[in-house]
Write a protein that binds this DNA or RNA. Structure first.
Length: 320
DNA sequence: ATGGTTTTTACTGCGTC
DNA sequence: GACGCGGTAAAAACCAT
């Protein structure tokens, strides 16, 4: 299993999109994914960026409304799901006249008829593209606000695109669906964000996000397993400035608890928060319940309850 | 709509620095 | 006395039915 870095590097040439190399994350042991587009290597578990070239990402301009964005937008990534047609479509007048206003001959009319038909098809697709464009902007905005790695945005884009293709949009807001897509993508990538965190950066009510999310998941037949508490750990640990040792302990506690099936129906975030807190105690590091509660968005009470349970579980299986 | 479960809110008591 | 922690009761949120 000893992959070399060199191999990872050479893979970044040419247009092949996300090829995945399997290396282990030094931080959390998760899978590393090479993100060619940004010349990064990111961990799917904790979002840690391992290699980063000094590549300028994103546009150099700022847009203050959709229209402005239309005008300024010029280029995008080479080939990606995040591209749209940028309004490069054509309209065909319905009048059967040529450019000088003369009536067309029968043959020409027929031809125009055909062209119109086809163009119409493209145009309906075009309305979808505009919709998509706006959604992708939103997805991007939310993803970066949440510090989600690039591959999550890709996934979110794909999900949204599928939702659009399957006509899931009518009756639902673009905002709502894009938010749901981000939520789903983050979870699928193993870098989950809690519904609360998502709500923070979205323009949509939590309840609507949840509703839309469920709907999209169901209609698209997406498989999303309940979030693994462990996937929250690295983030909490790092925002609390705790040691790697503590992180390890937290994971142990969670695995232990998992084996004993201590919990089901308990919020994974709460579990993670409690594990982090407990781990901090075990390693004699300074944290307070309040601090953990803050970064995890979980009440102190819940942390207390959970971490008692965790420690109990730990004790009933003394040696592993 | 309902009932059961989990989480949150608010408050209180205890020990320590 | 403020702070961190623990417990409790009641309210709120959530979920399945």
């Amino acid at each position: 299993m000893s992959n070399s870095n060199a191999r990872l590097r050479t893979q970044q040439d040419e247009q092949t999109d996300d090829q995945e190399t399997t290396l282990d994350c030094p931080e959390c042991g998760g899978k590393l994914v090479a993100d060619d587009e940004h010349g990064e290597t990111v961990c799917t578990e904790c979002g840690l960026v391992v290699e980063e070239d000094s590549v300028d990402r994103g546009p150099e301009w700022r847009a203050f409304d959709a229209q402005e964005k239309d005008q300024k937008s010029r280029v995008g990534a080479p080939t990606t799901n995040m591209m749209h047609d940028k309004g490069l479509s054509t309209n065909i007048d319905w009048r059967d006249k040529d450019a000088y206003g003369n009536a067309l001959g029968a043959k020409q009319r027929k031809k125009m008829q055909r062209l119109r038909k086809w163009n119409e098809r493209f145009r309906t697709r075009d309305s979808k593209e505009r919709n998509l464009k706006q959604a992708l902007g939103e997805i991007d905005r939310m993803a970066s606000a949440l510090g989600l790695p690039e591959n999550v945005r890709e996934t979110a884009s794909v999900i949204y695109r599928r939702a659009l293709d399957e006509n899931l949009l009518p009756g639902r807001s673009i905002e709502g669906v894009s938010t749901a897509a981000v939520y789903a993508a983050a979870r699928q990538a193993g870098v989950p964000r809690s519904l609360d965190e998502i709500t923070e950066v979205s323009r949509v009510e939590k309840s609507e996000i949840a509703r839309t999310y469920r709907y999209v998941i169901r209609e698209l037949g997406l498989e999303v397993k309940p979030a693994d508490p462990e996937s929250y750990v690295p983030r909490f640990v790092s925002s609390l400035g705790l040691s790697e040792e503590a992180e390890r302990r937290a994971r142990e506690l969670l695995q232990n608890a998992k084996e004993q099936g201590v919990h089901s129906g308990k919020s994974p975030v709460g579990l993670a928060a409690a594990a982090v807190y407990a781990a901090a105690l075990l390693t004699n590091e300074k944290t307070t319940q309040a601090a953990v509660s803050d970064v995890a968005d979980i009440s102190e009470v819940t942390i207390r309850n959970r971490y008692h349970e965790l420690l109990e579980a730990e004790q009933s299986i003394p040696v592993a």
